[in-house]
Write a protein that binds this DNA or RNA. Structure first.
Length: 396
RNA sequence: GGAGAGGUGGCAGAGCGGUUUAAUGCAGCGGUCUUGAAAACCGCAGAAGGUGAUGAAUCUUCCGGGAGUUCGAAUCUCCCCCUCUCCUCCA
């Protein structure tokens, strides 16, 4: 298809070159009207040739929404890195490392929704009254604990070199397409039909698109951005899954970390990014593990992904709390994010990476469940105490 | 929501149907001069794509976006988008 497209394009361009030449001849002639009359038949013929070839080229052009070539390319995911383990589903993911040991409880640990309702800090019933299922109300120390977590994450991000950004939460269709979300989250996004705006499913979208259509200087790389935002997802394909509690909500908060790097730096950056996210769990003293997603589980736009999973006592299992991906040049190509190695050298595509650092709601529930005490109160992790001004969330 | 003004190369800013391969200035790069620098002077300079060897060369497209008029459009017509100013409303 590409070969066909290019030969049609060559036909268009050579005919155009000839036509331009004739037009310039008229422009240079002393008697322009006479020259125009004389050359008219030739020009007319060229115009027809151009139009025919243009129609042919347009049919396959990637600019054309109906082009089969575009369709093919749009549906093609990123190329996986060689280090990604082969697998047929998530059971083939590989645990790379972990830290912390699940705590031994001398009582039956409660799920966070029960703890939260007893403490009066989580209210799912009233949330349902306001907005239906998959929403939550945080109240009192719950709201404050959530805010403390955000503050803690952002301060850590800043110390690790990230520039904090507060981006728009609604973005255009073009921006969504550029970051590859229209394929990945096509049915998952809330959308305003009239203005054709989408509510972001993750801050990865505005952060990655920030430098779209720009040519950066090599010395500006890597760029590191952090944003705290709400995220909105329909969760249409998750009917009946995680219906209780904070795990899967239509609206949740997240601190997102994004890097733009030179191509040769991106896999090293993925390790650093993952370590940054991981260090937050370590600081909160939550047991976790790092998982390298297998070929079947890596998302559409990523070449390699590490998931961070946190221990949830009520479920006796590890649960995803962060996902760190190297998207190589996949998003950069769609968004036209380039850089120059030297002032005179050709622009090259950057590599983009993103990771949660971390999901706020899931951190909140992980803290609640792992730090719960026999009397139903919750100890506050040491690193969060200065934000809350207390070391325990008591039963009221 | 209403009214007006405007969108031109990294920036500023001309051009308003055909020697525009977009003037000029600043910034940038190279050179002359200089022990070195500055100043002055001279020259080169953007993006995307096709053919081609990632060379040389060459062609096409790009003056907010799209469509149109014309042999020929930055320049004329229509639609859309964005920015600024004033009014209105408002966290």
């Amino acid at each position: 298809m590409d070969t066909q497209y290019r030969s049609a394009l060559t036909a268009v361009e050579t005919a155009k070159a000839e036509k331009n030449r004739l037009s310039a001849e008229i422009g240079k002639a002393a008697d322009k009207a006479a020259a125009a009359r004389e050359l008219r038949p030739q020009i007319e013929q060229l115009s027809q040739r151009i139009e025919a070839a243009q129609t042919q080229a347009h049919e396959l052009s990637v600019e054309n929404p109906d082009s089969p070539l575009r369709e093919l390319l749009t549906q093609s995911p990123n190329v996986l890195d060689d280090s990604v383990p082969d697998g047929k589903d998530e059971s083939d993911n590989i645990v790379v490392r972990g830290a912390g040991t699940p705590r031994e409880f001398d009582f039956e640990p409660l799920p966070h929704w029960e703890l939260g309702e007893r403490l009066g800090i989580l209210d799912f019933e009233r949330a349902a009254k306001l907005s239906g299922s998959r929403f939550s109300v945080l109240r009192g120390d719950g709201a404050r604990l959530s805010r403390a977590i955000v503050q803690f994450f952002l301060e850590r991000a800043q110390r690790s070199g990230y520039v904090e950004v507060a981006p728009p939460l609604l973005v255009s269709r073009q921006t969504m397409w550029n970051t590859g979300q229209l394929t990945k989250f096509a049915d998952a996004m809330f959308q305003d039909q009239g203005a054709d705006l989408f509510m972001i499913p993750t801050a990865e979208v505005p952060l990655t698109a920030l430098h779209g259509d720009e040519i950066l200087n090599a010395e500006d790389l890597p760029l590191q951005y952090a944003a705290y935002t709400p995220c909105f997802r329909k969760e249409a394909g998750a009917a009946g899954k995680d219906t209780r509690g904070l795990v899967r909500q239509h609206q949740f908060e997240k601190v997102e970390l994004v890097w733009l790097t030179a191509p040769e730096q991106s896999f090293d950056a993925l390790e650093q990014l993952t370590r940054h996210a991981e260090s937050l769990l370590a600081a909160l003293e939550l047991p976790y593990r790092v998982v390298s997603l297998c070929s079947a589980d890596v998302g559409f736009n990523a070449a390699k992904t590490y998931d961070l999973e946190v221990w949830l006592p009520s479920a006796s299992t590890y649960r995803e709390i962060s996902s760190c991906s190297n998207c190589t040049d996949f998003q950069a190509r769609r968004s036209a994010i380039r850089f120059r190695r030297e002032p005179k050298s050709k622009p090259e595509l950057v590599h983009t990476l993103n990771g949660s650092g971390l999901a706020v709601g899931r951190t909140l529930l992980a803290v609640m469940e792992n730090y719960q005490q026999a009397d139903g109160s919750i100890r506050v992790p040491a690193v969060l105490q200065k934000y809350l001004g207390t070391d325990v969330i008591p039963r009221s």
